[in-house]
Design a protein around this nucleic acid. Sequence first.
DNA 1: CCAAAAGTGTTGAGTCTACACCCATGC
DNA 2: GCATGGGTGTAGACTCAACACTTTTGG
Lengths: 248, 248
Amino acid sequence: MLHEEEAIFQPGLSVDCVIFGFHDNQLKVLLLKMKAADKWALPGGFVYKEEDVEDAAVRVLQSRTGLRNIFLQQFHTFGDPARSNRKLNRALLRSVGVQADDSHWFLQRFITVGYYALVDFSGAVPQPDATSEACAWWDFQEMPALVMDHQHILQKALETLRKQLNDQPIGYNLLPEKFTMPELQRLYETILGKQLDRRNFQRKMLGYGILNRLEERKQGVAHKAPYYYSFDKEKYAVALENGLQQGW
Amino acid sequence: MLHEEEAIFQPGLSVDCVIFGFHDNQLKVLLLKMKAADKWALPGGFVYKEEDVEDAAVRVLQSRTGLRNIFLQQFHTFGDPARSNRKLNRALLRSVGVQADDSHWFLQRFITVGYYALVDFSGAVPQPDATSEACAWWDFQEMPALVMDHQHILQKALETLRKQLNDQPIGYNLLPEKFTMPELQRLYETILGKQLDRRNFQRKMLGYGILNRLEERKQGVAHKAPYYYSFDKEKYAVALENGLQQGW
DNA sequence: CCAAAAGTGTTGAGTCTACACCCATGC
DNA sequence: GCATGGGTGTAGACTCAACACTTTTGG
């Protein structure tokens, strides 16, 4: 990618994706281990000259996880000139075998558009890119050192996710097709960072009228088996009309 | 500005500001009449190579209104390649006396970062820029034809403003230092596009604990004179701690 | 003194919170 | 059978929407 000519990319512009997953009762973020530094980075990429910025984010998402048709949302654009790190980028070029002088397009200042994605952890297959030696999920509470301002970007994404969750039930994007109510609750508790009452949670969630309870119950669990639920897109559309705000 | 060399601006990047004001019980938006077209445009500008994107927005805001220290917030970045309009931009260049071929920096694709601002109408002094022949407030419900995707940008700004108003009382940014409760209510009604109950509005608004009632009452009005209120920044900080969400 | 606008209070409906109770399952 | 987790129900606190009443001012 970095070998390619300046001419094919929109100059000074990138996208970065904060890809959230949920596993083992933990909120996870997909990160790349840089070849050029002892740090990790958010999956990102450049925008082709005639490509929609959002399409670029979709492309990044798909190439890092193999997933398509994912909940993806722009949340902020980071335009501090000091955010670019020429030293790192030079090392990055070297790591893929490119020698360049200061005028190289990749060494200029970059503005990045941040997107966050909610994906089904079990369906994603992490793939490193050319500049990275690994691609892995990290627990959002135990993040490694990140390059440049990626810590800041992540923080902003998390903030947006929390707000969003308050007036739009988007949690199930992080879960498989069918899931149990306790699982959904753990998810909410993790994202919001606080405990919720089991019974009130269930009532409120069902009150949105966007979940279908399946006949099937979870198998092989200790104690009483919980029902499975699935998300109902049609009911969701109806529910949106009526509006479903309010906080926890 | 457009005479200046490519070298001083971040290529392919602009900012556009949706500047809201409130006057005569109407929500207003500041627009520029293009010299190069029979349409109006949102105030915008380019970003210097070493300038923070947000600083560029502040600069635009100040040069169009004379105002500083204004409520300003990034709301979305518009990255559709089809949003740029080479024909318009060529006319724009001509209007300031520049002849250029297709490779001119200003004729390339532009990504724009959208900011919205809330200003005190009575304090702003509209100033056209080099590419425009007029700068004026328009009622947001009676907008003229806008260039490119500016209608879309405006729509998105309005949407964001409405949502924001639901979980953060930001309305007084649009009013002078001191204002009456009925004035504040008209403002909310205009932005939200619906009538609100006078008494419940007052109770809820005062409940936030961020307004000071002044001794003074409004002079020279028919009927009973309403009190003036002023916004209290310190109390606001305290109120934010406790959280003040919930919708109307 | 009357109409219109503003300040203040009340009440019933609805919602949310904090529980109690019962049921199912593995050990 | 008992500890644990899940499904369902309920009483009290709280909030909110809809309204009544009083006060002030200009004409």
